[in-house]
Design a protein around this nucleic acid. Structure first.
Lengths: 124, 124
DNA sequence: GTTAATTTCGCAACACAGTTGCATAAATAT
DNA sequence: ATATTTATGCAACTGTGTTGCGAAATTAAC
């Protein structure tokens, strides 16, 4: 079983108290040297596996993490939309926006990555 | 103005004759040492700017390139869906699948990145 | 409570995608 | 034919993410 360490709790708290998705680099900054770079990667990996957070690939290719709000631990649906601001870089989740897709029946969907980039409310 | 060089023509041809989107690494392979790594990056950049191809960030964070089929040189709409196969790695464009999004009015959309990952028709 | 088994951590080193600077080469304009 | 502009190749670098391994910390067993 996965253990609850100081680093893990702190990282989860940082992500949960953030209104936007955070990158590894940003989290590392907020950890202020408490944790090793690699440890942060591994903790994030664990938190994803335990369904505490979900990973979103930003339009710049960098992975961001956000807390799973509307997901219970059993049912996960990360098919919602993300908005990435090209000015301030903030990645926002629109958990109410789910998209219905009509793919050929032999295509099996495992993971969603629905992101739109542009200017967010603050920057427009 | 941008020039039409041997490398540029060859790369455009590789992308246009491919049914799936290609990464820099794959294109470099197909160029068989004709072109420097960096030159390929720069040619791809030029082709994107000239609206010959468009870039899609795959779920693994790697940028892929596909020819602009249904886009004229004046009107671009890259709001269509992409499917990334987790087994064979192929990135397919669904140019007929456009998604309607309902964002707050103060959000200005500049770029789309709508990708779904899973098993493609061949791998399912 | 002490010891053994697991898990996590930190460090070093690595892999890979992508970028920048600069001198040279090639293509276009004069 | 020469000057100007653009493109290329090479080297070096940045940033994100990964792997291996010994040490430290945590949990389980005795």
């Amino acid at each position: 079983m996965s253990r609850n360490t100081v680093g893990k709790s702190k990282i989860l708290e940082i992500i949960q108290s953030s209104p936007i998705a955070l990158s590894h680099a940003t989290i590392q900054e907020q950890m202020k040297g408490t944790c090793d770079r690699v440890t942060i990667y591994r903790i994030l990996e664990r938190l994803v596996k335990e369904n505490e957070i979900h990973r979103i690939v930003n339009v710049n290719g960098v992975v961001n993490f956000a807390a799973c709000k509307s997901c219970s631990h059993s049912s996960h649906h990360h098919d919602h939309l993300h908005f990435s601001c090209t000015t301030c870089g903030e990645l926002t989740c629109f958990e109410d926006q789910s998209v219905d897709l009509k793919l050929p029946s032999n295509f099996i969907i495992q993971e969603y990555q629905l992101t739109v980039a542009g200017l967010c409310g603050k920057c427009s």
